[in-house]
Nucleic acid binder design. Structure first.
Lengths: 231, 231
DNA sequence: AGCCCTTCGTGAAAAATTTCTCGAACCCCT
DNA sequence: AGGGGTTCGAGAAATTTTTCACGAAGGGCT
């Protein structure tokens, strides 16, 4: 099966998130493409095609089995094989991410947090003791960590990214508002939230003012709770 | 001029962010579409079309004037006419957002923060005293606030969104991992960051493993510094 | 057991987006 | 002042993504 296009991945995550709300209420064991489409504002045909693309087959007059859809999506993304990641930069945002409880649904487990501020090193955040940057490489090597979450100031990002790469990390989720560069075999995902802000601003203050509404992060979706979270 | 499509808005923000890095170094007064394209991995033709769409004209053998491009983008989004927003939910993420210093580039000014936790109310975050939810409506009315940033637990999001709407807010930047509903004239921007995580996971753990790399928030982009930020 | 009505699966059509090709503009250099 | 090489601007082509239209499958009801 050829790799799924980003657009498809994005929709799959939307479906996945929507299903969370369903599994809560037992007795709901199936969903129809029409139901998903109406809830997420996606054409039902599109839903069926996406499902078909990951090998899901529905039942004619019934729809798709919730548990099966959920499982299929988990498999596609590899959420069923939990992976460890480390977080670099225990500032405000880093703290917020460490405290976000919803990542397990995406197979992510944050194994350690690093920072270079002596004031912060040694403190405990969300049950994790913050380690000095110095110990980053040994840790990554020892635990064979492949993913890193970067929540550092722009000024330090690239240098730390390089360091992560040389330590063996293969994927970086970058939250600092800078475009990072890395070798081809390392995946960088720049998480620029200002895109969302800009879209709101455009509709609110821009030229013509109001036009279509309801926009979602093409790229950025998730799930959870407790004063302040992510997704 | 008909409204710009979301894809275009997204690229414009990418250009805007890229230009930040340029204005630092004086002597750089122009950019070419080729330069922008190479840096952001966007086809040069696309860059020119986007610029043309917002009325920018380049100079033949030179390119575009950095300051003019920047100004044009600010005008399109309305960043040149600062607007006030309030933040609801002063948890970890809310705190991180309040401390993020880069929003002014996008015209955003956070005027107040609200929470319903007695422990938090009254404390000061990033120079802002946290107010009780009770005072939300009066504040919005009095200051004619049109935008709200929602960083509350999923369980409270919809109720608060409704409250914001009834108070007169016209745009909600939702960080809780739930799809919110609101009247048609209210814009909701769901900021789901898990999309980014999922894309990384897919390339890392998914089916075929490695394929193309370097992905950015469609949705989603921004700029800044200090241990922990956003964009 | 048979009919009806939903819902899937698909191929074709439509729309949107990106990429290609080129002519024209025009700064720089000699 | 003229030649050259670079960069824009635009129309056309290619590609991707979304939407439409329908046949087929298969529960549920009488």
């Amino acid at each position: 099966m050829e790799p799924l296009r980003p657009v498809v991945l994005e929709r799959l995550i939307q479906y996945y998130r929507y299903l969370f709300g369903l599994t809560g209420q037992r007795s709901v064991e199936t969903v129809t493409s029409a139901q998903l489409g109406a809830a997420l504002d996606i054409d039902p045909t599109q839903v069926r095609k996406d499902f078909g693309a990951i090998g899901l087959v529905g039942i004619s007059r019934v729809g798709y089995e919730v548990s099966e859809v959920s499982r299929a999506i988990r498999v596609v993304f590899g959420f069923d094989r939990p992976y460890e990641a480390i977080l670099v930069g225990a500032g405000h945002l880093g703290k917020a991410i460490l405290n976000y409880p919803g990542f397990s649904r995406y197979g992510l487990e944050i194994a350690a947090a690093f920072d270079n501020d002596p004031e912060v090193i040694g403190t405990e955040i969300a049950g994790l003791r913050v380690r000095p940057i110095r110990s980053l490489k040994p840790f990554v090597r020892k635990h064979a960590v492949r993913m890193a979450i970067l929540t550092t100031p722009v000024s330090a990002s690239q240098a730390l990214a390089d360091r992560l790469v040389s330590s063996g990390v293969k994927a970086i989720w970058n939250f600092s508002p800078t475009r990072l560069t890395a070798p081809r075999d390392v995946l960088i995902r720049n998480q620029y939230i200002s895109v969302g802000l800009a879209q709101l601003a455009y509709h609110l203050n821009g030229p013509a003012g109001g036009s279509p509404s309801r926009i979602s992060t093409p790229e950025k979706p998730s799930k959870d709770r407790s004063p302040t979270q992510e997704n």
